[in-house]
Structures are given as C-alpha cells and as structure tokens.
C-alpha cells in the first residue's frame, strides 16, 4: 500500500498509469494545489538537469588511478613499523675509542717526534747557541759564533762607536 507521498512522487514523474492514475486523480480533487506543485517540481528538475551537469574530467585516467591507489592503501594491512636503528657509537664505545686514540697519540708522539723536534743531541743539551743575529743599523754588523773550547756563544758586534773614558758607564 503506497502512501500519498509515494503516489504523488510517482504522479509527478509520470509513472502512474491506468486505474492507479485515475484513483489518485480523484484523491487530488481534495488538493487543488497539487497541480501547481507538480509544475514547480518539473520546472526545478529541468533547471537542475540543465545547470548542474558534472564538469568533464581533463585527466580521467590519472584521477581513476589516484582513487584506486587510495582504495588499495586503505584495504591493504599496515606494514609493521621498522625497528629503531641503533647507532654504533654508544657512550661506552665512544669513551673507549677516546681513551684508545689518546693512548695511540701518546705512543706516536714519543715514538716519532724525538727524531725531529724533541730530541737534542747530548752534546748540545747544555750549549747556548744563537739562531740569528742582525742589526738594522747599516753601520753595525752582527755575527755569532760558538767556541767549542770554552763552550760559549758570542754575538760579535762590529761598527759600534768608541766610548771615551770620560763617558760614565754606571
């Protein structure tokens, strides 16, 4: 048994025929506004069909592929999260490596450096020597030499002015 609304909708859509149409039209005699509502509904349907057509897709294949991928990813069970990667350089290993490198550096220092900078010849250990001697005064020449016999180094300045005895030194 159809309700009045169902029959009204079918009547508007033109799907009532025969005795069913005649019986409903007799019912409508009690509803004179029904004809105006039918015309309004038909007009509204025509406007919707004319103006609300779906826009054509420019990349329909791509759109479909995206939709399919989303569907597949939602259907596929989630993969288990990867285990957190542990760094090789833990604190104990860092401490051990630091101590080892310090030891290695110390061994290298004492093994290699004596041959270059640290080592001093035994006979030079207690000898004063002059690395360079110079004078900005063009009248003065500065030279140096070492006396092995006396174990003394001398900076020899030539060109200095003679000092007379009346010149007080103290």
């Amino acid at each position: 048994m159809k309700t009045f609304e169902e029959k009204f909708t079918a009547w508007v859509d033109g799907r009532l025929t025969g005795s069913e149409l005649a019986a409903f039209e007799r019912e409508l005699e009690e509803h004179p506004e029904a004809l105006a509502e039918k015309e309004a509904a038909l007009e509204l349907g025509g406007l919707l069909r004319a103006h609300l057509a779906a826009p054509p897709l420019r990349n329909a294949d791509f759109f479909n592929q995206q939709i399919l991928q989303q569907i597949e990813s939602s259907v596929r069970p989630a993969a288990p999260a990867p285990a957190p990667r542990r760094s090789f350089w833990t604190l104990p290993r860092m401490a051990f490596s630091g101590a080892f490198l310090l030891l290695l550096a110390s061994l290298l220092y004492f093994a290699a450096v004596p041959n270059t900078r640290r080592e001093v010849r035994r006979d030079q250990q207690y000898v004063t020597n002059v690395l360079n001697a110079q004078s900005d005064d063009p009248n003065i020449t500065a030279t140096s030499f070492h006396s092995d016999q006396d174990n003394v180094n001398v900076v020899w300045l030539d060109g200095l002015s003679y000092m007379p005895p009346d010149h007080k030194l103290k």
Binding site: V130, V154, P164
Partner: peptide, 11 residues
C-alpha cells in the same frame, strides 16, 4: 755555557 755580546770599545 754563557752568551757573550761584544760591545763597543771603551777607553
């Protein structure tokens, strides 16, 4: 092992 610096002549 001292260092000597030869200075000027004096008197």
């Amino acid at each position: 092992s001292p260092l000597f610096i030869r200075g000027p002549l004096y008197d």
